[in-house]
Design a protein around this nucleic acid. Sequence first.
RNA 1: AGCGGCAUCGUCUAGAGGUUAGGAUAGCAGAUUCUCAUUCUGUUGACACGGGUUCAAUUCCCGUUGCCGCCGCCA
Length: 489
Amino acid sequence: MTDVRVRIAPSPSGNLHIGTARTALFNYLFAKKNNGKFVLRIEDTDAERTSQAYIDNIFDSLKALGLNWDEGPDVGGPYGPYTQSERFDIYPKYAQILLEKGFAYECYCTPEELEAEKKLAAENKKPYVYTKRCLNLTDEEKAKFKAEGRKPAIRFNIEKAQKAFHETSMLTFDDMVKGELHVDTNLLGDFVIMKSNGTPTYNFAVVIDDMLMKISHVIRGEDHISNTFKQILIFEALGAEVPKFGHLGMILAPDRSKLSKRHGATAVSEFVEKGYLTDALINFVALLGWSPSDGQEIKTVDEIAQDFRINEISSSNSIFEYDKLNWMNSHYIKMLSIPELKERLKPYLTKYDLSELTDAQYTRMVEITYEPLTLLSDITDAVPYFFGEDVEIDDKAKETLDSDISQDVLRTFMDRAKDWEWTEENLHEKLEAFRAYYKEKGIKPKVTMWAIRAAVTGRLCGADMTAILAIIGKEKTFHRVKAAMKQAV
RNA sequence: AGCGGCAUCGUCUAGAGGUUAGGAUAGCAGAUUCUCAUUCUGUUGACACGGGUUCAAUUCCCGUUGCCGCCGCCA
């Protein structure tokens, strides 16, 4: 078997899309499983849509996801360069070969002429196929066009290639995930391989690069299926070995349309900013189309690679739903160690003055608040009452504080607590007794605690109350309780 | 319009010619906790439709429908 070499070839016209990340993952898994190489190639033939910021984003996102490449623009490799814009001198040579062999021809049609052809086809309700009007241009005709200042594009001669390598017009290939796929090449139309500005089109550049980079397996989205037939013909015309193809179903938004900005985050970096862990993202996205043989869904990329078989991937589209991603993210958050959590939560705590807390207090705060987090960013709204002298009291807490019972609880609390030793263990004991005291008077423990919670945190729900009191300290606690009492009088 | 692809709980999926159609997530109910959440337990919920083939089809074939994709000198 030839060496397995796969690639991810993003176009830097945007940040790394979550769908591209999944395609990259499946390529990476395939390489891992088969001891192959995973290469990164940047497809920036369209200079206008390319930007360095996007390239950086693609690198960073892929790295953050743990999808490290063996060969690529930054690390190099034996078949570089790995950025298409740096390979522009390569493509014309191969176009020339095709021209000489008769598998390609010059096309002098103007955009306007082409537009008219398309319009005509649309009017006749016929699918548009290029009319091949430039196929048999004489030298005189070409010279005349050139004299007019027209620069030729180069088109691929489908019929010639098809007749040279296939019995009939039906072209077939065996897709690794979808099985046999066919098309009638008569419907393809002679497509442009070199633009009139001298740069290659996508379909051409891909073939040349995959050929030169010795890519053995092309795993990509199913939106490329119709390109595959064209690409196979080019490989054959060049006398190159045709790689194996595998086409993945698409990731759709909940409304079944393409996942786009209006559905929220689409770029990996956006998910990360929102507080998603890359481990959770990659695990989640792996489950779109692939399923573990042991039913254990939480897995590292390496574990998945062991269990990965490309022919077992689902060939249907799948919908990207947040429910499960969220569950998985909270699961991964819970698996983080406290020291790790302390660091990873910091970016979401910038609106608070962390220096108000000692390291021990910060540690404890994290310990009692991380469990219910769905996103790392949820920490922001979960902890305001650990900071500052006063707290903002929300409506429900206000209402609770207004009751006679609450006021009574607070008075008693102040009276008793002034003598308490302010350690968490002791507070735990004392508050238990405190609740018991009120329980005997017919007041539920939670009502008792609500009064204190409302006064100290300004809300009715939150983390462990004993720990909160211990962390913020006696002074601050009393200050807030007094404030709450005054308000109600 | 044409061509191609896809079709199992809301969602992600497992499954095999004969299964009580399994799991996860979400939902619902209960238990636990000072609250919310977490956690635990239980539970609702699916083979798109119509024809074949077969003793038997959700599974194989054909058609219909639906959805997705492609028809650029974008990638």
